[in-house]
Simulated scan of single mutants.
Amino acid sequence: MESGLVIMGAMNQTTASPHSLTLPPMPKIPIVCLMGPTATGKTALAVALAQALDGEVVSVDSALVYRGMDIGTAKPDWAERDGVPHHLIDIIEPNQTYSAADFRRDALALIGDVHARGRVPILAGGTMLYFRALLDGMAEMPESDPAARAGLEAELAQRGAQALHQELQQVDSHAAERIHLNDPQRLLRALEVYRSSGVPLSEWHVRAQQSAYAGPVLKLGLIPEDRPRHRALVASRFMAMIEAGFADEVQALYRRGDLRLDMPSVRCVGYRQLWQYFNGDWDWDLAVEKAITATRQLAKRQMTWLRKESDLTAWNAFELNRAESVDFVRDWCAKSK
């Protein structure tokens, strides 16, 4: 998803940006962050923690924000939420976008609101980019301009990726080293930033002011230690979604007429593959096979993010003692007040 903000990770430079952004005040409120790959039981544990700790759940899932996308996203229904307030679910239409910057803004506001009610904010989900945006901070850069992007896309079609990558090499060699010429989205964004601001993308990273989360953070990771078991679970879970009417859900989206395959909502795992079935690109069996494969690849990427997390308390998703987990988090909350 395009955004005018950059995730700040390892960099710690604090030179002010020439286009400074007034970031939301950073609260010093203790938060619980429950992370993990898809199909590891995050929803059930988040609800259990919220019930035991008088908490509220803030979803950290880029797919749950969309209305009308329930089955394929494993969106918790009212029964699964079991009376626990959930936030950042069903907040936009599938033809709209929701960036990491949007999430950070909304999550910070919700953390303050939940805390003001005397409750514990529990952030749960598998969109690691959102966690990174909240915890490590973000920095401003020029907003994406649709007209400028359209012009760059026309240039890409006319001149080719190689020529545009060579141009990027001339104006921002550091970005060119990181961005492959077969990654048009990042390539065009890097050129757009330079052309609109006169400042290379890599320089924006250097100039950016970090704004990491200032309060105590408990990071919990649900890890599927038994990988073959998890791979089988991913497949059986997807087939259960099919039985629950997932194909009908995707077909309804396909028939809306205002959605395209390149939109973030349609590109969600499972939706993209069934969309291509309805589009006549693949037969049914191939679409299902590709959807299961894509879900497993998503889980692998999520695990890659988790391995980079510092101060992570990792629990085996298949051997979780829920009572002990709740006690652990309760003790942490008591010490962090």
Rank of each mutant, 00 (worst) to 15 (best):
M1C: 12
T15G: 08
L21K: 04
M26R: 07
T43L: 07
V47D: 15
Q51F: 06
L53Q: 04
G55M: 05
S59V: 01
D61N: 15
V65H: 03
K75W: 02
R81H: 10
P85M: 02
H87L: 02
I89H: 10
I89P: 12
I91W: 07
I92Q: 12
N95S: 15
Q96W: 01
T97R: 10
D102I: 06
L110K: 09
A116S: 12
M128D: 09
L129G: 13
D136V: 00
G137F: 06
L152E: 03
G160F: 01
Q170S: 11
S173N: 11
P184I: 01
Q185A: 08
E192D: 12
R195K: 11
G198N: 09
S202H: 04
A208W: 11
S211Y: 00
A212G: 09
L218Y: 07
E225H: 07
A244C: 04
Q251Y: 03
L253W: 03
Y254Q: 08
V269G: 09
G270Q: 08
Q276S: 06
L286D: 13
V288W: 05
E289V: 11
I292M: 10
R296I: 09
Q302P: 06
M303P: 01
L312A: 13
A317R: 05
F318A: 14
F318Q: 15
V326S: 02
R330I: 12
D331W: 03
W332N: 05
